[in-house]
């Protein structure tokens, strides 16, 4: 069964006829063609498919596309401002928090959402905020550093 779907993704509005059993992840990847959002498990366990729905991180594999109808989605492709990386992205690059990169888009968006809600998180708050994103490569050490660094970069940005 198809149904009309309105979505704003990274500021661009889309209007499509979409099967009701499609997930937000499938629509983002297959219909809109943004493949930065990854499918890691399809069960909400790994967080590779994390996107921001009205600014909040969700597993897009567990959201029916039509449940997001009329709402605003930001994917990893929508984070940088042209060629200028978002401070969270910059922090991930500079601290070496990236290895294979498959978890990175979700990890970065979870980190951004965490810092939006809590600009100066403690170590424990970082762990709580990112425990829905699995990474098999880095051992997470540099990811924690990246979030701490991003918090500082955002502070600096605020100050200037």
């Amino acid at each position: 069964m198809k149904r009309e779907l309105h979505l704003t993704v990274n500021g661009v509005s889309y209007h499509r006829l979409i099967d009701t059993h499609r997930t937000l992840l499938e629509v983002i990847r297959d219909e809109i063609g943004l493949t930065g959002t990854k499918n890691g498990c399809g069960q909400g366990e790994c967080g590779a498919c994390t996107v921001l729905l009205d600014g909040e991180p969700v597993n897009s594999c567990m959201v029916l596309a039509h449940e997001a109808d009329g709402h605003d989605v930001v994917t990893i492709e929508g984070l940088a401002d042209g060629a200028v990386l978002h401070p969270v992205q910059r922090a991930f690059v500079e601290t070496g928090a990236i290895q294979c990169g498959f978890c990175t888009p979700g990890m970065v968006l979870s980190a951004k959402a965490l810092l939006d809600r809590n600009p100066d998180p403690t170590r424990q708050e970082i762990l709580d905020g990112l425990k829905g994103n699995l990474c098999r490569c880095t051992g997470y050490v540099k990811i924690i550093e990246a979030v701490q660094a991003a918090s500082c970069l955002l502070d600096e940005e605020e100050a200037s």
Binding site: G44, P57, N59, M62, G132
Partner: peptide, 12 residues
């Protein structure tokens, strides 16, 4: 409630 799943899960 805060011990359920992840932030992504609890947002839904």
């Amino acid at each position: 409630a805060s011990w359920i799943g992840s932030v992504q899960v609890r947002d839904r």
